[in-house]
Simulated assay, not measured.
Amino acid sequence: MGFPKSNLQTNAELLADAGYDGIEPNLTADGSLWDDKAVNEFADRIDGLGLDVPAISTTLHWEQQLSSADENTRRAGIEAGKRMIEVANTLDAGAVLIVPGVVNEESPYDEAYDRALESVRRLAVVGSQYNIYVCVENVWNDFLLSPLEFAEFIDRASESGPVGAYFDVGNVKRFGHPEQWIRILGERIKRIHVKDYRADVDTIDAFTYPLEGDVEWTAVNKALTNIGYDGWVTAEVPPYRTAPERMPPRVCSDLKHLFP
């Protein structure tokens, strides 16, 4: 989720107080996760709070695109992914969240696909050394737009190491049915992100908190049960603009209602 505070350890304390089981840190360009000492201190703190880490995420791959035609840009994205795997290993996360590529005028779909596949395979090789899943997330990147294509991409990348899906329920609602994606992806799903989506708003503003949009949560929960998924379900929502510290306990309560 979007954390209420800027300090990672403070956010961990807020989430522990709100009743969460874990916290998903985000690797940023100048954040503390690049510092081994800071990561070790964070590991000690969350251990004391009784929190686990489901995965390490990042926003860097929107700029350091793994599908970029520029070799230096791809290399930077791969290095960020490698660092995520190292942090995941230290924090016993078991997975990292990767944005595999971005399709635009400079990066045509077919070329982006080939470069993204090569980059994810390179990260999968590193992930295999640590037993860390490289999880590809479905995002608004004009790429891997169907569950069949998404599944095939994961299967091809998995030839090089542990690759799975970090399935975002809200992201799919724009152009598909989450429960169908879940059924088709099946055991490829290793992590879940949840947020809601208002179908009457066709912009980024359509995203909202669980239970406030048009996602059919009963169908989603049933689909997850049918594929035998019993892993992490992580909220990915922003803090409130006013009194941001009040958001985590409310969302935690709603998640426990949706996924008892």
Rank of each mutant, 00 (worst) to 15 (best):
A151C: 08
I98Y: 06
P147I: 00
A157C: 12
C135M: 12
A124K: 03
E187G: 06
A95Q: 11
E106Q: 11
I184L: 15
V102I: 15
D155M: 11
D114G: 09
H193E: 05
E86H: 01
V172E: 05
F143Q: 03
L97V: 14
R188M: 03
R156H: 14
G94R: 00
Y133A: 09
E152H: 11
E187H: 10
Q180A: 09
N104I: 04
N131M: 10
F175R: 09
L91M: 04
G176E: 00
A116E: 13
G127A: 13
G101R: 00
G186T: 09
V163K: 01
S128A: 15
K195N: 05
N171H: 15
F150C: 06
Y109M: 08
L117F: 08
I182C: 01
A165V: 01
N171M: 11
R188F: 05
S119Q: 04
V125N: 07
G164L: 06
I154F: 12
Y133S: 07
C135Q: 09
E86T: 03
D155T: 15
N131V: 09
G164I: 00
S160E: 14
V96T: 14
R174S: 10
H177Y: 14
A165P: 01
Q180W: 13
I182G: 03
S158G: 08
V87T: 08
I85G: 07
G176I: 02
I132S: 04
L123D: 09
K190Y: 14
R115N: 02
F143N: 01
I184T: 14
N131Q: 12
E106G: 06
Y109Q: 12
L148V: 15
N171D: 14
Y197R: 13
T90S: 10
V125T: 14
P100W: 01
D155V: 13
I182P: 00
V139E: 14
D110F: 15
E179M: 08
L123V: 11
D92M: 04
C135S: 15
F153C: 12
P100M: 02
P147G: 03
V103T: 10
A151P: 04
S119A: 10
A93C: 08
R174G: 05
E149N: 13
S128W: 02
I189M: 07
I192P: 00
I132L: 05
I192L: 06
E105K: 09
D114N: 13
V194R: 03
V102C: 02
F150R: 04
G127E: 06
A165S: 13
N138L: 04
A88L: 08
N138E: 08
V163R: 02
Y166A: 04
